[in-house]
Write a protein that binds this DNA or RNA. Sequence first.
RNA 1: GCUGGAAUCGUCUAGUGGCAAUGACAAGAGACUGUAAAUCUCUCGCCUUCGGGCUUCGUAGGUUCGAGUCCUACUUCCAGCA
Length: 369
Amino acid sequence: MLKFDIKKKQNLARVGVIHTPHGDIETPAFVGAATRATVKALTMQQMRDLGSQAILANTYHLTLRPGTELIKEAGGLAEFSSWHGPTFTDSGGFQIFSLPDVKISENGVKFKSHIDGANFEMTPESSMQAQWAIGADIHMAFDHLAKSENHQDMKEAMDRTHAWLDRCVKEHQHLIKQYSHPQYLYAVVQGGTFLDLRSESAKYCAGKNVDGFGIGGVFTAEGMDEMLQVVNSILPENKPRHLLGMGQEPIDLFIGAERGCDTFDCVGPTRMARNGSLYTLDGRINIKNAKYTHDFTPIMLDCDCECCKNYNKAYLHHLFKTDEITAKILASIHNEHFIVETVNRIRASLLDGTFTNYRDSFLTRYYKK
RNA sequence: GCUGGAAUCGUCUAGUGGCAAUGACAAGAGACUGUAAAUCUCUCGCCUUCGGGCUUCGUAGGUUCGAGUCCUACUUCCAGCA
């Protein structure tokens, strides 16, 4: 069983440590999205330098390229990518259900590779096998995302996710015996915006032999507070919870942490960065805007990332306007650091009892417009 | 000096009688949440009550219901010959 120590609690919120085979994660923590075993535009050394504690890769992408057996041959995701720290993998469910041609059956999902159209099938068992081959410390159960937000579709997807969870747990237990290094499994709670379904899903997942929980199918902060209160009041307190895919908006992280989520991952910060949208304490700015041409101040005066310590907005503006790859690198360092650091401060504020003040002052300033 | 050719939005460019005018780049702005994303969308002559109105394709005339497109002259540039 994955070891998770809770150091402090405040209602649903908690500060803890997840002890993974590749190291500890001080929670709450933001996990870098390394879909294809790399955080886009960043080296693993840069990720370490900006304070990241863990990364999350994707089973769908790594199955297509380079193939999960190759990663196994390399010694696993952490070794292959030279990250050497704690790692997660997402099951591939989310990606597969975003493809245009998916055929769902009880057995699994048939789909075509977005790269070359080759036919693939993924099942709960094959996703587990793939994740064990990738060798991340923490795996997500193979889940089904609903195609729409209506109650019936959502329930159908949730029921299938539950049926698949049982098969994931069984296969996981089977695979534990075949590998010498321990790896851990999170169940994924579904149910969309429907509190009755969320409640049902949380109860179902809570009863399973898993090491933690992913909370999936959340797309905006709207309604998230109430939903997380329902879900995290049901999930067992002594196991970590990962809020899947949320964290582009700082408010997601404040709500998530306050309502008992321990880790987060999101592609937003690095994607925003590559597109020139940079976080500041006063909201995001678009560094490509003409008004930054002569602005020789850093993105944030009180930021200690490599980008802000060494470069100013006029320079970044120039790098973006000339489409230099350094623009994306520096912007990604800043944005990823900003979000990692925001969660780090949430953790610190929970520890010293200043969370509410920190939350209110941060959100008021960030969203003041 | 002669003979050809060319002049269209910031730049390059499409256009051969119905055209406020094609495409690319540049420029201006917006979007992005378990990454088919170094991507995508919008604006880009002036004005607008968003119906439309006005002024445009080197300059000045002309032919025509109608001209960026045809004709004449001029200006500038390019090529070849002197």
